[in-house]
């Protein structure tokens, strides 16, 4: 038990991402309201973004902005700066996730105009008739 707890605390960033991802996954699959599904999708994507951001972090690392002259004369100690690449990747992923959310919201507006509801059950009932 203690070993398990130590394991969780040592890698808490991974555990948080797994838990968040499962919450999002449940909302996407289990919820019947379309807006809740969309929110679940956002949580799911955010979990992955947090996962990426956390892998770039180093204990005691500073921001990756270095003085050009100091870097040229002494070189850079890689343990002193955090890895900026995962963060930069996530800028792209955030853009992707925002645009998907935008498209999905626009489609939800169309669905609401068409059926007057965003509950999946009620929509399916209306289609069935």
């Amino acid at each position: 038990m203690e070993q398990l707890l130590a394991e969780i605390v040592a890698k808490y960033n991974y555990w948080i991402y797994v838990v968040l991802m499962m919450i999002g996954f449940y909302a996407m699959i289990g919820k019947r309201n379309l807006v809740k599904k969309l929110l679940g999708m956002n949580i799911f994507q955010t979990a992955i973004i947090l996962f990426y951001v956390s892998i770039g972090v180093k204990r005691g690392g500073s921001i990756p902005i270095v003085d050009k002259h100091a870097a040229l004369s002494h070189g850079i100690d890689a343990t002193q700066v955090i890895n900026p690449l995962p963060h930069v990747l996530m800028l792209t992923a955030i853009v992707v996730s925002v645009s998907i959310t935008g498209v999905a919201l626009a489609i939800l507006i169309r669905i609401y105009r068409q059926y007057g509801t965003l509950e999946e059950d009620e929509i399916l009932e209306k289609i069935g008739r």
Binding site: K37, F44, Q45, I55, V96, A104, I107, I111, Q114, I123
Partner: peptide, 27 residues
């Protein structure tokens, strides 16, 4: 519109899984 929304949900799950896989490879 409804079909497209369902596709968005499924397609995002697929893309996110792919992104996670890339994350593991990057680590």
């Amino acid at each position: 519109a409804l079909s497209s929304f369902n596709y968005i949900i499924m397609g995002s799950i697929g893309a996110c899984f792919y992104l996670l896989g890339v994350g593991y490879l990057y680590i």
